[in-house]
Nucleic acid binder design. Sequence first.
DNA 1: TTTCATACTTACATTAATGTATGTACTTAC
DNA 2: GTAAGTACATACATTAATGTAAGTATGAAA
Lengths: 124, 124
Amino acid sequence: MKEKATLSEKLMRGDLMEPDCPSRGVLMHVTSRWGVLVLIALETGTHRFSELRRGIGGVSERMLAQTLQQLEGDGFVRRVAYQVVPPHVEYSLTPMGLEVAEKVRSLADWIELNIERIVAREPA
Amino acid sequence: MKEKATLSEKLMRGDLMEPDCPSRGVLMHVTSRWGVLVLIALETGTHRFSELRRGIGGVSERMLAQTLQQLEGDGFVRRVAYQVVPPHVEYSLTPMGLEVAEKVRSLADWIELNIERIVAREPA
DNA sequence: TTTCATACTTACATTAATGTATGTACTTAC
DNA sequence: GTAAGTACATACATTAATGTAAGTATGAAA
């Protein structure tokens, strides 16, 4: 499926066809059900937790929190908390996050634009 | 999160921020654990079931079959079976499938290229 | 004084995804 | 005759993902 290389070379470089490649984990965070939508939402700018919660239809607080933490852990999302009450936390993309978000949105845009074409030819 | 529009307008056009938009289903097929890898593998050309099975590290027969069927159902994959024994089936991308695959690979490539940068700054 | 909003966490329940093992029908190679 | 390869389907078991509900601390508004 790709040029031959040693296992360690593949893993260092990132080879998704290898079962143990760390790329798979990152890919799963980014392409997870809510990961995609969070990245797209944050591409429009900084947002608070509750804004994201309201903007992303159907996401629960639990899932939103978890997704944001994963993306923060991968270095795609920056979290800034103000020590006030009630709590005020702002989320935004890091430069690296912006790069992935662009790729993700490109895919999402294609699907949104072509959804009628896809659904139309769907069997039952 | 996006311009205001009626619900039906959103759904027709495809609005991923809407919980009931069919785009979400397609997106999930495409970004599913094995969907991504199948699309990337097929971008290199036509492949038999067993070739994909061997090429995509860690995928089970069950999951590969299921993933291929989903992608076929969405119109991204074409399946051609020859009536011979032992069975011979070839999978390839449709023109539409090629379009999505390009987007998906673009994302995957970015992750593979940047995996070291990502992992390096990972906390624990 | 009760309610509301915020940004979570935690426990528990449920659903979805995935894996494992087995079977099939036939042919070719051993 | 026995094993292997092919492209699956199916039943069952397990794991992962997700949802629901409740709790927390505090201040401001009603």
